[in-house]
Design a protein around this nucleic acid. Structure first.
Lengths: 189, 189
DNA sequence: TTCTAATTTCAGAAAAGACTGAAATTACCG
DNA sequence: CGGTAATTTCAGTCTTTTCTGAAATTAGAA
């Protein structure tokens, strides 16, 4: 691997973290490399920079495209495919959230729905089903919230984040405004 | 594995999902079993229910305790250790968020900080560092938000989720209120 | 203390996953 | 159409992770 020092450290870190993030070392490195590359790279650039086999790079790029984290970009007068990561980090965050939800949450949600349709056959199954219902409820609330949030443009998303827990204060303000508008006495209904 | 039907399906699903969630099959199954168990289980109960080796169960329990997802619970007149999952699903969510952040986010944040301290030695490294700064900024904003949110009790967290993107509307309301209070003309300062 | 039950450790076996190079396929050019 | 460059596929190899059983350790009861 011959890369400038900063790039190298960044790439190595992403490789190490790969397994924790549910991707493998090579895929992590390829992503990192493309993320900091000042221009789209072709597969051979990656082979050279990271010292991987050509076929491994091909598979890694495929996986990253499957995550929508890497996109092909055509370069004039070059037959080879080139690849980049979309530049806007907020967009990257959205993509990551979307894909992780699809892989890590949706299958469970759908299994839970199935299991909640069934009739428990033992006392323990009855209890188990109640616990599953709790989990299902939680996930539903989270995904409903997420479906709502994901539609925000980046600017609004940022201000929402900046607001943080202060939102609850706003909630109180809203309460007051509504109450004042109506006259009185129906708060916390 | 001999478990009532619903329990069995639930446990098998968690086993399959394990690898996507960064734990292994057995650990996923053990967690699932404890989650739906109507009372604390000892290691041998788990061995019997899931058909794993005693030592594997021991290691799985250790890992789950490391995640704070499973806690030991002493049972009167029984020398064996028993284990449960904390009951409140919102608390489970907090724990999960906390632990995943610790494992998946914090190390990267700290590496990024280090790399941003260094002086780039090539033109490409300069660009790379700028990209790292973008990533760092994003993660900082997210973790700041998270640090704020995590302090909320479950009730407030739920209402915040229920609010979803409507928060931005509230922001507008706040703007108006503030503006009215002040007189006029200094919105979006 | 001694005895026994419960648990953990750990070296090696088994399984899963990642990686490679050679061969096959695809895509483009003349 | 060839011919060639680029890419993908895949069977086999290598690496890593998971799992096991036997041995060691720990903790409680007598």
């Amino acid at each position: 691997m011959h890369l400038p020092p900063l790039a190298q450290q960044f790439v190595l870190h992403f490789g190490e973290m790969g397994s924790r993030w549910g991707i493998n070392r090579t895929v992590g490195q390829i992503y990192a490399l493309l993320y900091i590359a000042p221009r789209p790279l072709c597969a051979d650039d990656i082979v050279e920079s990271l010292g991987l086999s050509r076929s491994n790079v091909s598979m890694g790029l495929r996986e990253l495209q499957g995550w929508n984290l890497v996109v092909p970009r055509h370069i004039a007068d070059d037959r080879r495919d080139h690849f980049t990561t979309p530049g806007d980090v907020w967009q990257i965050l959205r993509t990551l959230a979307e894909e992780r939800k699809k892989r890590e949450v949706d299958p469970t949600l759908s299994v839970l729905r199935e299991l909640l349709m069934q009739t428990p056959s033992t006392e323990d199954d009855r209890y188990a089903q109640a616990r599953m219902a709790e989990m299902h409820g939680l996930i539903e609330q989270l995904t409903t919230w997420y479906d709502d949030i994901r539609k925000l443009d980046s600017e609004r998303l940022v201000s929402l984040l900046a607001l943080g827990a202060k939102v609850t204060k706003l909630l109180d303000i809203k309460d007051k405004v509504v109450t004042l508008g109506r006259g009185r006495s129906d708060r916390k209904a």
